[in-house]
Write a protein that binds this DNA or RNA. Structure first.
Lengths: 114, 114
DNA sequence: CAAATGTATCGACGGTTGTCAATACGGAGG
DNA sequence: CCTCCGTATTGACAACCGTCGATACATTTG
């Protein structure tokens, strides 16, 4: 049970992530959030993400055909999404299998909460 | 009460907007979503949005100082957010007052729903 | 070891974007 | 009508980004 008012730091901590609509963002928070949203600001990456989410686990080689892009381009986009923490890759043999990181997506979703 | 299974079209309609994680995105959906997320992919715009959200209604002239950018740059960013439908501006006299469009933010939030 | 194959990196090119100074637009007030 | 002042637009520049061909790396397979 709560016995005293929350501090701002505690509230932020409890909410886990900065919220855009709740209060003015600090520069650092804005910079970090902008980088995350930038990962979603490309149609190829959004489709890639949705493909990985739908299949729960997808090999890079399975992405090239549905996305209609070259292999280096696919690798570039998977890296971008991975750098943003939205997907993680596991190397098994010659293949890399990608899966989404739901918590990371949820964090971005929470940043847009009212 | 539901008497038959939902069609895909009905499900999409009920959800109102394409969801990234639910099913593979069509190219058009991905393109549109990417443009919206691109509006959020800049730290200055995120801070601008949070300032407008916090004050509920903000004049352009009140944004220049806290954001530390030139007047044309502020105008550029308000236009970008307005083009994305995230804010709307109302001109009263010499001033333009901006407010957020909660439904539009919510639509983006919904696109990240599990 | 050698060949084959999936992935990552490099280099280059064209297009986009954030920024600001200069300028144009437009309403308010003398 | 003229001036002031907030806003929008233009032009220019640097930085960034998406894309692909070429190539390097790594791992399996013969």
């Amino acid at each position: 049970m709560r016995t005293r008012p929350m501090t701002v730091a505690e509230a932020t901590d409890e909410a886990c992530c900065p919220s855009v609509l709740a209060a003015p963002l600090a520069e650092g928070e804005a910079e970090a959030l902008a980088q995350s949203f930038a990962a979603l600001a490309d149609p190829v990456r959004l489709r890639l993400l949705s493909l990985v989410a739908a299949a729960d686990e997808v090999c890079s080689c399975e992405l090239q055909e549905p996305l209609g892009k070259s292999q280096p381009t696919i690798s570039h986009h998977t890296k971008a999404l991975a750098d943003a923490g939205l997907i993680v890759g596991e190397k098994r043999g010659r293949w890399v299998y990608w899966r989404v990181v739901p918590d990371r997506v949820e964090a971005l979703r929470a940043a847009l909460a009212p």
